[in-house]
Design a protein around this nucleic acid. Structure first.
Lengths: 224, 224
DNA sequence: CGATGTATGTAACCGTGGTCACAGAGGGTA
DNA sequence: TACCCTCTGTGACCACGGTTACATACATCG
């Protein structure tokens, strides 16, 4: 099978933790895993749902969000290729249901490892175990940081930081930025207008160009 | 050593995950661990610090908080006896520094496991591994919930929820409640006054008695 | 070309919650 | 008793950000 061999290659490139596995175990793993393709905007998992396996993401990114009663949305974190969605791991390991929604931000292809396979890997492979722990640790640190920002930082600072993290030319709608921040479109538009007036960015339809990174940086870091 | 035997007893009671260890390994573990006593308000770890070991808490509770530039504080979670501070685990496993502060809320006694011992336990003991994973999973779920609440819920709702979780008679200052919520004393006082006016609670110095749980509940759950 | 849908600009309005500045009140100690 | 310290009450004030309600711009498609 050409296809399957390619898949193994891709897997090893993205997940160095799997490189130390004996070839037989790797083959067994690929055998047992379910490959899945998800279109953009497809819901990967819903809040309150129990979970089916441990996903290894090969292409694309998944966003994990909380949605408020009023329909507002906030991004908790992203899961890019090479990572796995720890919220899923959470469920696997604690047996608790999901507490957020996962949505494919791009077309996504992933391998879904059955729970039994996952548990065996964690038990037998030190690199894989380290990989999983590291994922947990990073998510926890990110989430703690997010709590601090939501609780203590003004929206303009959070928006500035978001823009800085996105590179110099950002192609997305104000609505999308608002959802990432847990706010609403009008406010993001207003703040962006201020940024433009201050010469930090220039605006066009579905496009924000960062002109003065230093200025934005200073705003984002004000009072820390 | 009487003392050491007692310690092992306490450990097994609080940490069922350790019960399956062979006696020899358990003894070695207790041998290698450093017992620590911390007074109330002692800082257990600071933000940005790298970490010394994996703590098993025998008595008391530790609170983990973020502190804003302006000195305001928000509680991320508590670590009671029988748990371990996963933020520490995080650091252990990811090698990253702490991203929050830990403070003893009561007098605390704990055993600090050296990293090597912790890693061996995780590698060899399925119950211990499950225990650690479960801690991670629970913290992540809690933190996601916290993000949602801070981002989308009004302070009166969050305060109501906090009171409900604390039982019928709550002995603490408004300042302490404010710090738990990431707010300030004046606002908590104002909201409590409203609660009292609505007949939900009765107030005295360092004391809040919940009179109408149903009323508080309804407020806390409004719009979900 | 006009029509429709999506993204953006923008103004008026106001509720929540944070800041500041005090005034009392309760409780312990000299 | 007088003193002091902590906790609480309270009012004025205001900034941030969310809501509502439109008006425009821009793009795609029939």
């Amino acid at each position: 099978m050409e296809k399957r061999a390619d898949q193994q290659q891709a897997l090893l490139l993205l997940y160095p933790a799997l490189r130390t596995l004996p070839a037989s175990q790797l083959a067994a793993l690929c055998q047992a895993a379910t490959p899945l393709q998800l279109p953009t905007s497809r819901e990967v998992f819903a809040e309150g749902q129990t979970c089916k396996g441990f996903p290894l993401i090969l292409h694309g990114t998944i966003k994990v969000v909380k949605i408020s009663a009023g329909g507002r949305e906030i991004l908790l974190y992203r899961v890019p290729a090479g990572d796995s969605c720890v919220i899923t791991s959470s469920c696997l390991l604690a047996g608790s249901p999901y507490s957020a929604r996962g949505i494919a931000e791009t077309p996504v292809s992933l391998l879904l490892l059955p729970i039994a396979v996952f548990e065996e890997l964690v038990a037998t492979s030190r690199p894989f175990r380290d990989f999983v722990f590291r994922l947990f640790a990073e998510r926890i640190a990110e989430l703690m940081q997010l709590v601090e920002e939501v609780a203590f930082h003004r929206l303009d600072q959070r928006l500035a930081k978001l823009l800085l993290a996105r590179g110099d030319a950002i192609y997305c709608t104000h609505q999308a930025l608002a959802e990432e921040l847990g706010s609403v479109r009008e406010i993001v538009s207003r703040l962006l207008k201020n940024f433009a007036a201050a010469g930090f960015v220039s605006l066009a339809r579905e496009q924000i160009v960062v002109v003065d990174r230093a200025g934005l940086r200073q705003l984002a870091d004000a009072g820390r």
